[in-house]
Computed example of a mutant assay.
Amino acid sequence: MAARCRRVIGSAALCAALVAGLGGCAGFSPVSGADAQGGASAGVEKQAAELSLVHEGALTVACPLDCLPYFQDANGVQTGFGCELMDAVAQRLDVEVAWSKADSADAALARAQVAGQTVRGAQVRADAAMTVADAVSGQVGSVVADDASGMVRVPFVDVSQCLVAKKSSAVESVDDLGGCKVGVLAGSPGAAWAASSLADVQLVEYNNVGELFSALQARNVDAVVADEQAANYHLRVSYGDEHVVQHIEGADAGYALAFDADNEALAQAVAQALCAMREDSSYQQLCDAWFSEADNSRGKVEARTPEQGAPGHDKGGGV
């Protein structure tokens, strides 16, 4: 991928890196109707009427919805970078977003395939699934074939992993982890990296990011491995004594939308919408809102509920 968020060095720098990863939105065919001068929005709207959707007028997205800053479902209110990004994409396609809450990433993927997922004897289908994978190839806003799964993916954010510990602890790098308990998110790229790269440690798995950082705060683990954007979000809104001690190279991960290969036209339209968001800076606005650098120099800052969203970000407004 053209730009890796290997080091989160402030919201402006981070978003510049993410937007650079969009490049010229190359790597896929222009949406039908887009002219040579860049009439991408008109092309998206023209094709939207011809898209094959599980439910007419709605882009149905399957996702676990349990990991801020990307996704959260609190009292029926969906929030997070991924949720707001899909709201903006759907607006450009002139459709609504319908969320299909899945129990796991595998369940979400199954729902995005033609056969769907069988739940209590009923077929549950979605147009796309939010997924995370090691080193997602392709630029944000491109369409990438995944031969292993028979699906196509549209990367929408690229991250790397980091090590987080308490400021008051002796852990200053991965070299200090001998004999330590290290928390990881079950099934995540960070967990895979830790299992293959850390020796003489006890790995403790947690089901979501909130549990992961709560365990560190309660000293149930000595350190955690997490993606940088999630770490910066949680450190900024909820924690004061914890901080990022090391950025981990070679443990890249990315979030992508996965579509059944038979529905590549929809993937193309979504990818073009992401490119349009880069052009009008709304992609960067979401980055600014959700992926600001953790700043623990002032200690604990005002916490925000999932319904409120990130500090300084008015969820009532759209992009």
Rank of each mutant, 00 (worst) to 15 (best):
A265D: 15
G179S: 07
A112K: 05
G10I: 14
A3W: 10
L198A: 08
A223T: 00
K101W: 02
R153W: 12
A126N: 05
Q229Y: 05
Q47A: 13
V124G: 01
A34Y: 05
D200W: 03
L203P: 02
F259H: 05
D103H: 04
Q113W: 01
A90E: 03
D35V: 12
D227W: 05
G316H: 12
A215K: 09
D252T: 09
L177I: 03
P69I: 11
V182L: 03
V204W: 00
Q229A: 14
P306A: 09
A218E: 10
T79N: 14
A231L: 08
W99I: 11
R153D: 10
G23R: 10
Y233C: 04
L53A: 05
Q139V: 10
F28P: 06
M277V: 07
W290K: 00
G33S: 07
V224T: 07
Q284I: 09
A3F: 11
L266F: 09
Q161Y: 06
V171T: 12
D295T: 04
L22I: 14
D134H: 04
Q308W: 02
Q123P: 12
A129I: 06
V114L: 13
C25D: 04
F81I: 10
A148N: 12
A122H: 09
A90I: 12
A253R: 04
A186C: 02
Q37E: 15
V245C: 08
A62Q: 03
H243C: 13
G82R: 02
K46G: 13
K315T: 12
Q123F: 06
A135H: 13
V143R: 07
A58C: 13
E45D: 10
N232S: 13
A115H: 12
V119S: 05
E279P: 02
A267L: 10
A13I: 14
K300M: 13
D87E: 13
G116M: 08
A230M: 06
D227F: 10
D241Y: 02
D176E: 04
A129V: 02
A36L: 15
S281V: 08
A170G: 07
G254M: 09
V136M: 11
D35H: 10
V174A: 11
L216R: 00
V184G: 01
A107L: 04
A108P: 09
A133K: 11
L14P: 03
N75F: 14
R304C: 15
